[in-house]
Design a protein around this nucleic acid. Sequence first.
DNA 1: CGTTGATCTGAACGATCCGTTCCGTCACTA
DNA 2: TAGTGACGGAACGGATCGTTCAGATCAACG
Lengths: 198, 198
Amino acid sequence: MATVTETPPRRRASIGSRRNPETEAAVMAAARGLLAEQGYGGFSIEEVARRAGAGKPTIYRWWPSKSDLLIAVYDAEAAALRAPDLGELVRDLSRHTIDLWRFWRSGPAGAALCGLIADAQGSGTGLEALRERFLAERLAPVRAIFARAAGRGEIKPAEVEDRLALWVGFNWVRLLSGRIEDDAPLIRRTMKVIAGST
Amino acid sequence: MATVTETPPRRRASIGSRRNPETEAAVMAAARGLLAEQGYGGFSIEEVARRAGAGKPTIYRWWPSKSDLLIAVYDAEAAALRAPDLGELVRDLSRHTIDLWRFWRSGPAGAALCGLIADAQGSGTGLEALRERFLAERLAPVRAIFARAAGRGEIKPAEVEDRLALWVGFNWVRLLSGRIEDDAPLIRRTMKVIAGST
DNA sequence: CGTTGATCTGAACGATCCGTTCCGTCACTA
DNA sequence: TAGTGACGGAACGGATCGTTCAGATCAACG
């Protein structure tokens, strides 16, 4: 999916006292490509700057921490992922989980989230970024799936958060242990347990 | 002649052509203390060597990677954690999860596991260590809980692995997002969902 | 009793990355 | 025209990594 598009090292100077959109795009593209090609292991601000033909101070000006850049990459990609509404909880969860794993596999987003979680273990600011600026927003569509199911009476409204946490945990442990290959039967069985539909 | 009484970092020379148990104990104690005091953020081989009064080559000889040392610390601590057998799945899971979170909070084990998972995201060897040398062994007691429940007919034997994965995911996401404070009601509600006992 | 071999520490190495600072250049704006 | 702020580049001090070397120690072996 991610083809290497090495920008020729041409000079991209300032365009005056305002942010240069070309620079922003070049940095984002470099970060995307680096994550997609080498995963989080090969990700560093230095290498992003090299690839983007940008200065490190420029990157640190707009993305003050590594977590900021990872979140920006994930958010930019996440527009391609939409939560389904098929009218039944297990079907919604299964469909969305399959889509999510494919989304993680086929681009930089999976590696970005891995890095976001890994970084959070080392710095207090990373943990805060993960919880407040990532989880809080990225979980909304899935929470909506559970909320709709509660509206239909499939689960109790008070159970939404508990079951949502289970869904998150299942996906995290698969992502972080490197097992997000396509496995529809496994996903469907697991979603049934999470939904409580035995 | 030693003029200064440096209690922990005294000179500890070789004892011949065999491993020095004092050195091993000093390294393990240093790693434990560092993790317990500063968490994974302050954990480095350099600092462990400083605290243990050991040379870095000595550490790298016996624990070739950071993951090895983290696993060693976790394993040494885990002797204090035993899985219960209360005759009923939800009770076993709730009791064990409460114990596990306390175990993670009150010593170096939680930070060690955080680091183990974080390291795994950067290096292929770390990921392998996590899966093959940690998960495979550490999950056995909990798998036994599910297996006993299957023997009693509480769940189907074919569901053991799926429900076990959900249990792992729940604990990981709480640990990695820094929320393993004591919360018995939350744990009990979640264990009920995992056990399928609505 | 001497040789061999494996171990221990400490010092140093090259490399990487971090986050920051300074500088000269540039283009928009007032 | 003067001011402002972004840009790239170079360099910095600091930390850590994983490795290599040297010197000292002591057990096991012949």
